[in-house]
């Protein structure tokens, strides 16, 4: 409100700027506004501090090796985050790899191809995918997608690609349906609307002039999209992808239903695994207050928070740097 005070202060009747009726109520009101603003900062600090503090005993017990150790054995009380960190990154990366081309296509469709009248309804329908709660994706994935993948997708892939050298490792194991690939596919569908919405926003901010210049020299719609619009919005679009990645990393319920919840490490796309979030949701009921297991789960939470904070912060910086310029 600085500019407003300046306006009032500059006027000859500057006395009025002191607003006689608000002498007591205004400082209270402004104080409340500032307090709420600072509350958000304090909240973030508290979340980080409490997760770290809660998990500290586990970190002390296992040392830095907690980060990469792949043992997770509640019976012998040996805990490590390796399998979960791997599963979190693996499933989220599958999700981004699947969602990215889809988002590029849908954003192209929504900004260049679709008739004007259809753009809004179709755009809203894609956005509704983001509104469906995580647990609904989980149920749909568990009851519908998992059996389909187990019956129709995995057997041929295992048969054809499994025996190949190197990439064959990605396609081995029994066709369970639940596993990394299924989790990645469901996550892809969940982050798709976020990436697409930001893509559309960025593409719509491309100045018509530079697109028209490209059309003027005879470029096709796709060539303009690929060589003009996308390069123009590149930075913000990378930010959009990071946002999708950040969302995929922390998604809990949907993943818990379809990833198979195994605490073993496997390079196969079909092997059941677990993410940090799914492990916390799954194992929490068997982790009594004050137990080492609970502390290990809190430490896992802290690791997830750090990873997603970095990804989301980077996403914000990239998106904003573009919007400013």
């Amino acid at each position: 409100m600085a500019h407003m005070d300046a306006t009032l202060g500059a006027s000859p009747s500057g006395q009025l700027a002191h607003k006689p009726t608000g002498r007591i109520s205004d400082p209270i009101f402004v104080g409340l506004l500032w307090a709420s603003g600072l509350f958000v900062l304090v909240l973030l600090g508290l979340i980080i501090a409490m997760l770290f503090h809660g998990g500290l005993p586990a970190l002390k017990e296992f040392g830095a090796a907690f980060l990469w150790s792949t043992s997770w054995n509640p019976v012998t009380e040996k805990f490590g985050a390796g399998v979960m960190v791997f599963g979190t990154l693996f499933s989220a990366i599958i999700a981004v790899i699947v969602a990215l081309p889809l988002s590029f296509g849908i954003a192209f469709f929504l900004t260049e191809i679709a008739p004007m009248k259809l753009r809004r309804p179709i755009g809203v329908a894609v956005q509704l995918l983001a509104a469906i709660p995580s647990i609904i994706y989980g149920m749909w994935g568990f009851f519908i997608v998992v059996p389909l993948i187990a019956a129709y997708i995995q057997p041929p892939l295992i048969e054809w690609l499994g025996p190949l050298p190197v990439i064959g490792a990605l396609f081995q194991g029994p066709p369970l349906g639940a596993g990394m690939l299924t989790a990645g596919l469901i996550l892809a569908l969940m982050i798709l609307p976020f990436i697409t919405a930001m893509f559309v926003e960025v593409l719509e901010s491309v100045p018509p002039m530079i697109k028209e210049s490209a059309y003027g020299v005879g470029a096709t719609t796709y060539e303009v999209y690929r060589n003009v619009s996308v390069p123009y919005g590149r930075t913000a679009m990378v930010g959009a992808v990071m946002l999708g990645l950040g969302r995929a990393l922390g998604e809990t319920m949907a993943v818990t239903f379809v990833i198979g919840n195994a605490t073993r490490m496997s390079a196969s796309l079909f092997a059941p695994g677990s993410t940090i979030a799914s492990t916390i949701a799954n194992e929490f009921p068997e982790a009594p207050m004050g137990s080492l297991k609970l502390q290990a789960l809190l430490q896992l939470g802290f690791i997830l928070f750090v990873i997603s904070f970095i990804v989301l912060a980077l996403s914000r910086l990239l998106v904003r740097s573009k919007l400013k310029s």
């Binding site: 979340i47 950040g246 809990t252 916390i280 928070f305």
Partner: peptide, 12 residues
């Protein structure tokens, strides 16, 4: 960042 932070961590 909080807007997109994993909700499970808010629970923890």
């Amino acid at each position: 960042v909080l807007l997109s932070a994993p909700s499970i961590l808010i629970g923890l």
